[in-house]
Computed example of a mutant assay.
Amino acid sequence: MADNEQKALQLMVDAEKKLQSKGFLGGIFGGGNKVDEAIECYQRAGNMFKMSKNWNKAGQAFCEAANLHSRVGSRHDAATMYVDAANCFKKTDVDGAANCLIKAIEIYTDMGRFTMAAKHHQTIAEMYESDENTLPKAIQQYEQAADYFKGEESNSSANKCMLKVAQYAAQMEDYDKAIQIYEQVATSSLESSLLKHCAKEYFFRAALCHLSVDLLNAQHALEKYAQQYPAFQDSRECKLVKKLCEHLEEQDIEGFTETVKDYDSISRLDQWYTTILLRIKKANDESADLR
Rank of each mutant, 00 (worst) to 15 (best):
Q6C: 04
Q6D: 13
L11A: 10
E16D: 14
K18Q: 10
K18L: 13
K18R: 14
S21V: 05
F24H: 02
G26N: 01
G26T: 00
G31F: 04
K34N: 04
V35Y: 01
D36I: 09
I39L: 05
I39T: 02
M48Y: 14
K50G: 08
K50R: 15
K50V: 08
M51D: 10
M51E: 14
S52K: 15
W55G: 03
G59F: 10
Q60F: 04
C63H: 05
A66K: 04
S70L: 13
R71D: 09
G73K: 09
R75E: 05
T80I: 08
V83S: 11
A85D: 04
K90H: 10
T92K: 12
D93S: 12
V94K: 15
A97G: 09
C100N: 09
L101K: 12
D110S: 14
T115M: 03
M116Q: 15
M116T: 03
H120A: 03
H120Q: 13
Q122K: 12
A125P: 07
S130E: 09
D131W: 06
T134W: 03
I139P: 00
Q141W: 00
Y148R: 12
A158E: 01
K160S: 10
K160I: 03
C161H: 00
Y168N: 04
Q171T: 11
Q171G: 01
E183S: 09
E183V: 00
Q184T: 06
S188L: 08
S189A: 12
L190A: 09
S192R: 08
S192D: 13
S192H: 07
S193I: 13
S193L: 12
K200H: 04
E201W: 02
E201V: 08
Y202T: 00
A207M: 08
A207R: 13
S212W: 00
V213M: 15
H220L: 15
H220Y: 10
A221F: 13
A221S: 12
A221G: 02
K224M: 08
K224Y: 09
K224L: 08
Y225P: 00
Q227H: 05
Y229C: 07
A231S: 11
F232P: 02
D234L: 02
E237V: 01
L240T: 02
K243H: 11
E246I: 12
Q251Y: 07
E254V: 05
Y263T: 00
D270W: 08
D270L: 01
Y273Q: 09
T274G: 02
T275L: 11
T275D: 13
T275G: 02
I276T: 14
L278F: 13
R279M: 04
D285E: 14
E286A: 14
S287Q: 13
D289G: 14
